[in-house]
């Protein structure tokens, strides 16, 4: 039965020891440890949160940069297209101008040629008629040496003129 009866001496010492141990540990032991662990936990949580935030930010930046790049790409292709169009236009304009100029030149040339031709024709005609008249004079002079000849000539001429009038 003595096992089941508390001993006053033991109770006394246990009470004092436990109280002292409890106060020392409550002041310098457990709170230090638990506070530190909680602090570290907070730090880790915060770090994770920050990492998440940084990741999100990074993703945003990535997105923005992607956007900028794609925009730049679009701009580039647009500029290239426009430049190509411009070039085409310039070339075609130049071609047109050149064509017009050439046609003008050709037309001028044709005009000149025509004028020269006419000139040449006229001068040729004049030359031919003078020559013909000369030749005719010469022939006539030769043929009209005799009276008879002269008379027949006049006759024929008159006939012809009459025929012409009749016809």
């Amino acid at each position: 039965m003595s096992l089941l009866l508390p001993e006053s001496g033991l109770i006394f010492w246990m009470f004092i020891t436990f109280l002292v141990v409890f106060f020392i540990l409550a002041k310098f032991g457990f709170p230090v440890i638990t506070n530190m662990v909680n602090k570290r936990k907070e730090y880790i949580d915060r770090s994770l949160e920050n990492a998440d935030k940084a990741n999100a930010k990074l993703a945003d930046i990535q997105k923005a940069s992607d956007e900028i790049v794609s925009k730049a790409d679009k701009e580039q292709s647009r500029i290239l297209r426009e430049a190509a169009e411009e070039r085409e236009k310039i070339i075609s304009d130049a071609k047109k101008k050149a064509e017009i100029a050439a046609q003008k030149e050709i037309a001028n040339a044709k005009e000149t040629i025509k004028l020269q031709q006419e000139e040449a024709t006229r001068s040729l005609r004049r030359d031919v008629s003078e020559l013909a008249i000369e030749i005719a004079e010469k022939i006539l002079r030769k043929k009209l040496d005799s009276e008879g000849e002269q008379m027949s000539m006049v006759d024929r001429m008159v006939d012809e003129a009459v025929n012409n009038k009749l016809n």
């Binding site: 020392i24 540990l25 032991g29």
Partner: peptide, 22 residues
């Protein structure tokens, strides 16, 4: 008594363990 001494030893050991951890 020897139980009292054991209480002291255990209390001291606990203090050493926990305070060294702290």
């Amino acid at each position: 008594t020897r139980t009292t001494l054991a209480i002291f030893i255990n209390g001291l050991l606990l203090l050493i363990i926990i305070l060294s951890t702290a």
